[in-house]
Amino acid sequence: MEKLLEVKDLTIHYDTDAGSVEAVNNVSFELNKGETLGLVGETGAGKSTVALGIMQLVPNPPGVIKSGQIIFEGKDLVTTSEKEMRKIRGDKISMIFQDPMTALNPVKTVEDQIVEVISLHQNLSKKDALVKACEMLELVGIKAERITDYPHQFSGGMKQRVVIAIALACNPALLIADEPTTALDVTIQAQVIEMMAKLKNELGTSMILITHDLGVVAEMCDKVAVVYAGEIVEYGTLEDIFEDPNHHPYTVGLFGAIPDLDKETDRLSPIDGLMPDPMNLPQGCNFSPRCPHATEKCKTVNPCACEVGPGHTIKCHLFAKEAE
């Protein structure tokens, strides 16, 4: 398997008047060609900041990449110039945002918007670009004759398809999808997921899928990183996360909090408390104030990622003991 993207110790902070928001801390992961990585976590966990970091779109000020490397096709994006990044964005790496309603320009036709991306990055004649644009629409399941329509003439699910068509127009090596189906209804979500899975196989695109929905992860991902308060607390293959008995207490909490359709549960077991304020992270392990297994050590020493199986790491003292 060929390595496409490697993120090493990425740390991104937002320096504001009130203090430094530690949005992403020492995040590391790898992505091979054709693989899908799921970044799972709750609002404010820093998932989207990681994505913006890879795109080099962290708003600056206040956002600063404090340290780390993002190696994409052998090149460190952190040190890449803005001019070069502009060539990479939309061509080699593209991004899909959560809300399809605002991601499209309402006063331009779909044709204009797809052709724009294609002609920006590929040396195609106007005619060829149009042909390619029609192909892309057909690919996402929209009839090519609708290409002259404006975004408002499409429904929510169709708009998200258009957004995906634009993102895939230049056949990117990496697609970052930030909650691509959250704004959609379940039956429409099912359509979009099915289509994305099909396209991924056909085009061999690698994908980073950002979501809070473990169900979507189970459907689409090969690898999963569970993100909590700016850190990856558990990282492994889909099987590791869903089948392995060893888990980070936060992952256990996440699973316990969703009502299971196949089982009868009288009460849910939510995680107590709230996500810590990223401006004021707790001492030691970030999860310790909410963790049912927290010990004195957890409150003072930040744990390292411990390998519990090949490629399956958990950032928790509970598992460090076993290793000793």
């Binding site: 039956t187 979500q189 099912a190 997921i193 169900g215 189970a218 889909l238 869903f242 359709l261 196949d262």
Partner: peptide
């Protein structure tokens, strides 16, 4: 249509 949080 609901994606299930399980791979079994």
């Amino acid at each position: 249509a609901i994606p299930k949080a399980s791979i079994k």
